[in-house]
């Protein structure tokens, strides 16, 4: 019996030794050199593989960083400047400063504001609906409400509001990876500059129809009346396609445009409530504040 035991031990040890030698030999022979900095950069990245940088995953981005001459086109939106400074520290290069961004939803066609004209009954997917027809309302530009953007979000920064049928962005969680922008078949979601205290002013409508028609479809549509354009002191507002657009780079958050908008299409979010100074304007702003109030609570 002992000899059997002995034989087993010896033969197995020998076998293991031979296998180890073979493995060692092949590992040496077929070694692929990889820049160790890639691993270091990858460790510094958030590791969410969200694709916000334009690369399929964090590893690919790290490779690109190591290869790149300058960091002009490379930016990790999730990590923001901090991470890019770390990465540039590892690689000894200069990181370009970028402003943090945040997503906003440019449609306020809730059940209340936008009358439903028919009922969609098919696969619950925005792109399918978009390719088929205008959606449950007459507005051919507005949110379809099937939540493809919410499904695309990897950071739990969005949810569908049951009451309005619209997606809502949770500012704290949003990393501006752009997945929702890509997912939306109607390009409703925009990435805008993140201001302090997450304050936002934007036109919450992208309907390009003429004023009257747009108003008929949705009570809070931008009619392209140019009132905000005229009142803006900073040239931040441009008009085009019967729409006003506020450039988030130029906007100084003065809130003048919000007050003049006749349809409450311009939203101000996360601002302190206004002091009641000008009585005639209070009424007009109420609607907008209500909306902003609703969104800030989330």
């Amino acid at each position: 019996m002992n000899s059997v035991l002995l034989f087993t031990i010896i033969s197995l040890s020998l076998l293991g030794l031979v296998a180890a030698l073979i493995l060692y030999f092949f590992a040496q022979k077929f070694k692929v050199y990889e820049d160790p900095r890639i691993d270091q950069v990858e460790d510094a990245l958030p590791g969410a593989n969200c694709g916000g940088c334009g690369f399929p995953g964090c590893r690919n981005f790290a490779e690109a960083c190591v290869k790149a001459e300058t960091f002009d086109d490379l930016n990790c939106p999730v990590g923001g400047n901090e991470v890019m400074v770390t990465v540039s520290g590892i690689l000894g290069k200069e990181a370009g400063e970028t402003d943090p961004l945040v997503a906003v939803i440019r449609c306020n066609g809730s059940f209340e504001n936008r009358p439903r004209t028919n009922v969609y009954d098919g696969a619950q997917n925005c792109t399918i609906v978009h390719n088929l027809y205008t959606g449950d309302t007459d507005c051919p530009f507005g949110c379809l409400g099937h939540g493809e953007c919410v499904d695309a979000c990897n950071f739990e920064a969005m949810y569908m509001d049951e009451k309005t049928g619209l997606p809502v962005i949770i500012d704290e969680n949003c990393v501006a990876c752009g997945a929702c922008v890509e997912a939306c078949p109607r390009d409703i979601i925009e990435l805008r500059k993140r201001n302090k205290k997450d304050r936002k002013i934007f036109v919450s409508c992208i309907n390009e129809d003429k004023g009257g028609i747009a108003k008929k479809y949705c009570s809070v549509a931008c009619t392209g009346c140019t009132k905000c354009f005229k009142v803006c002191d900073y040239d931040a507002i441009t008009m085009g396609n019967n729409l006003a657009f506020i450039d988030s780079e130029k906007c100084k958050l003065c809130r003048k445009c919000v007050v003049v908008c006749p349809t409450n299409a311009i939203h101000e979010i996360n601002f302190p409530p206004r002091r009641v100074k000008e009585e005639e304007k209070v009424e007009e702003t109420e609607g907008a504040e209500e909306i902003s109030g609703k969104k800030t609570t989330n």
Binding site: G122, A123, N125, T127, I128, N131
Partner: peptide, 12 residues
């Protein structure tokens, strides 16, 4: 199942 809905999307 909405097979054709999705196939159409895939085709698109």
């Amino acid at each position: 199942r909405p097979l054709l809905d999705y196939i159409r999307l895939g085709k698109f």
